[in-house]
Amino acid sequence: MAEFEPKIVAFVCNWCTYAGADLTGTSRIKYASNVRILRFPCTGRIDYMLLLKAFDEGADGIIVSGCHPNDCHYTSGNFHARRRWIMFRSLCDFTGIDTRRIKFSWVSAAEGAKWADIVNTTVASIRELGPYTEYKIVANNPVKEVSHG
């Protein structure tokens, strides 16, 4: 069997991490190709439901990344996002969702090397954890037949 290739979804903000990832490319830094980048206007727009849907659709890992605190293009989007992540991560942990598979980071537009590093370490750790079968089994369960008899 071929080696397991993790599917990683990255939710990034337009102003910092997306530009940072762009810099990684223009600097010709090589990094793992397992990541699918989704560009958002701001980390404040990254709804927790989107993360759940990513797992639902078969992601093995998730990266959420945006501007460093105080650097938000919209002044406070990342502060709001941070509060939400604190609570969401804790709830995920409580409900048994594997929080090791969700990586949160701040990557600025100047940190091309950091982006490559974040992706590489995430891919390596997810490769070690293996596919997220727990979630996939539940996601692929057929809908129960309900009898009204």
Binding site: P69, S76, F79, R82, F104
Partner: peptide, 11 residues
């Protein structure tokens, strides 16, 4: 929010 909200998981 508070600018100094504490967390320990964001890299």
């Amino acid at each position: 929010y508070k600018p100094d909200d504490k967390e320990n998981f964001i890299q």
